[in-house]
Design a binder for these strands. Sequence first.
DNA 1: TCCCTATTGTG
DNA 2: ACAATAGGG
Length: 448
Amino acid sequence: MASVHWFRRDLRLADNPALVAAVDRARADDGLVVPLFVVDPALWRTAGAPRLAYLAASLRALDDELGGRLVVRTGRATDVLPAVAREVEARSVHVTAATEPYGRRRDEAVAHALGDVELVPTGSPYAVAPGRLTTGSGTPFQVFTPFRNAWLDHGWSAPAPLPHTPRWAQVPTDGVPDGPDAEVDLPAAGERAAHDRWHRFLDDALDEYGTERDRPDVEGTSSMSIPLKFGELHPRTLLADLAQRQGASVATFRSELAWREFHADVLWHHPSARTRSLRVVVPEDSWAHGAAADEAFVAWTQGRTGYPLVDAGMRQLLATGWMHNRVRMVVASFLVKDLHQRWQRGADHFMAWLVDGDVPQNQLNWQWVAGTGRDAAPYFRVFNPVLQGEKFDPDGDYVRRWVPELRGIAGKAVHQPWRVGTPEGYPERIVDHKAEREVALEAYGRGR
DNA sequence: TCCCTATTGTG
DNA sequence: ACAATAGGG
């Protein structure tokens, strides 16, 4: 009897317990394993071009690792899975458990559609499965620090071994789809490339991670967000490698992984947080609306706000499908507190463009900045784009890289072009930060 | 994972 | 002037 491994957000062979389960089940039944990926038109429509282009590249890499045996089928999962299971006479379909609202609903529907064929979830995309940890009184965690302590105490299993001598089935395939023509510079995709990048980070940048991760002008981050989003690496693999390392930065990086797991846990318990604020912090009538608001939103998306750090970040997003985390916080604060727009609008734009666009991370980090999350930055914390630029892009290199109009201004003066005379072609500030900060604080005062 | 203002101390 | 600090949104 064959078994099916249905790849979703686990596009790797190493440290993949669900794949091991599929291979073990097939061997016990003296059967073959069908490595399957389903191109669901609904998903293909909603994800933006950069992420789809990367996904297509990652699937090509996975197909290579499988010796060209990856089976790709197009259609709704509820139709494709039963059809493939019938075709290969499979008794079980193996998956890494989905934990987000959409994936959980889909898997329930697929399990139902499969009938007698078992849908077997093994593991999750997290070191500790969302929903696993609770407070002493049995309730979900609301606050990050106690969550992290419980998460560290709980620990995680060692990385899973490679599947033992898998025998892949040869089944007709639609072939890996072409990605859309995304006009962005994407990093190399696939398990191998992710592994290489991770080890380069461990060797070259981990020691300085504590300070350099906040600097958008240098390569101080791990750039693991994309491999983690697609499951080219499992966080358990990263945690095992970190355990072999010394230094203060190890705990800092582990803590960033804990944030990722915290957000997944919050969304597990509160699926509505995908679209709704967990707490309402300003009155509904304080949001900007109308043609002027729409125009400001477009200026924000295009990187034409007149605030150099904001514009550099938004242009980096359009050019590469990625933005440095420090700058994500600054541009998000700008949209919510300076332009008075709902976080959901910014989150949608991010999801359309980010290659690492991941529902729990994206939505809950937006809620963190907007102050609407359970353990979020208080609403009155407003980022000043000029000060953030001077502090974290102290020489202005990041701004000049992404905003060519400002390349004539040397040093950190580039963060305030209006002081030295705004160059031709670069916009004047679309709002006055000092004034809009006051407006936001006033709305917050009315909301209390 | 903020930043502004007022106040006090220092020269 | 400027730095350090407290208090507050």
